[in-house]
């Protein structure tokens, strides 16, 4: 899906936990996430902390979308 959407002309930030899979599939802008069942959350945190964590990942994704790249890149947070 990432590739077909990008092929159609959209920059895509792929947020995922197992980044090597994303590399193999062929995503270009790759954003590491927290865990497979909750990529953008952590149930061990309280609600505010969890949202702050999620915001950090989303900001990283927005940063990636604003960054020109030559090829695949993992944007470590």
């Amino acid at each position: 899906m990432v590739k077909e959407i990008e092929r159609a002309g959209f920059p895509v930030a792929h947020i995922c936990t197992v980044t090597p899979i994303s590399m193999t599939v062929g995503a270009n802008r790759i954003i590491p996430a927290i865990a497979i069942p909750h990529p953008l959350g952590n149930p061990a945190l309280d609600k505010d902390e969890e949202k702050a964590l999620r915001r950090k990942i989303v900001m990283n994704a927005l940063n990636a979308l604003q960054t020109d790249i030559d090829g695949q890149k993992v944007f470590e947070g």
């Binding site: 899906m1 990432v2 077909e4 959407i5 002309g9 959209f10 895509v12 930030a13 947020i15 069942p37």
Partner: peptide, 24 residues
Amino acid sequence: KKYGAEIAKLLKADGVDAVILTST
């Protein structure tokens, strides 16, 4: 692949500029 291409068409029609795609 098919879903990605179809979704892209819909996004285009709605004037979307960029996509955040999340995977578990």
